[in-house]
Design a protein around this nucleic acid. Structure first.
Lengths: 110, 110
DNA sequence: GGTCGGTACTTTGTATTGCGAGGTAGTGAG
DNA sequence: CTCACTACCTCGCAATACAAAGTACCGACC
């Protein structure tokens, strides 16, 4: 992954991770696998796990452990009310920035 | 600016800056002013100038100095062929990531 | 002459973050 | 008992956004 592509995705990991658990709880490894299917959002475990830990530490996620049918224990994360708020705010910001940048690229011959 | 908003924009500065000079040369202060008009892309001089310096150092921009009608000398930047290539690549990557994230947010109740 | 606001560029230091590399461990198949 | 897959975690490096602070040029106004 080229360094500028890495930079381009900075900050998006958190939003992407939050998005994966809006419809219900999710666990780390599963999140990585799910995001891997989305072009440009192929994050590794080294990236996702620390994000989950940080979000949980800051009260945006609650954790529940459960046995896996095929490996070590899974740690399921789900959004707390603060987490949902955070998700909504980030989504809004994202849409704003995204729209502005789209306008800028539109105006240029790009 | 909240820290996560800062992170959300990481890597976008470079693309935004490149976009401002696709249609012709531009100078630092002017770029800052122009971006300030776009919601979510209000970068400060502390952010933009280092980006310009880095892009020039890496051969993506060429520099030309010219007197300003109202202040110190301006340094006009324009895209080199490598710069145009970089801009096209970044734009493409951006559209990909943006589309994937939009899909993800769409799928979620967001 | 002096001050002030606006223009224009630069540097230093701090706080975050993405991720490669490497590690631990449970599980079932062969 | 080895191998592949699942599942989690941590260290260390490289990269970056930005506040803060500084320098300098200019015209206007008193």
């Amino acid at each position: 992954m080229s360094p500028w592509e890495t930079q381009l995705r900075k900050g998006l990991v958190e939003l992407a991770v939050l998005a994966t658990m809006v419809d219900g709880e999710a666990y780390g490894y599963g999140i990585v696998e799910r995001l891997r299917e989305l072009e440009g959002l192929e994050f590794t475990e080294s990236t996702v796990y620390p994000v989950l830990a940080r979000l949980a530490r800051d009260g945006f996620l609650a954790i529940r452990a459960e046995r896996s049918p095929s490996g070590p224990m899974r740690r399921y994360y789900r959004l707390t009310p603060e987490g949902e708020k955070r998700f909504r705010e980030m989504t809004k910001s994202w849409r704003t920035v995204s729209a502005s940048l789209a306008d800028l690229l539109e105006g240029a011959r790009g």
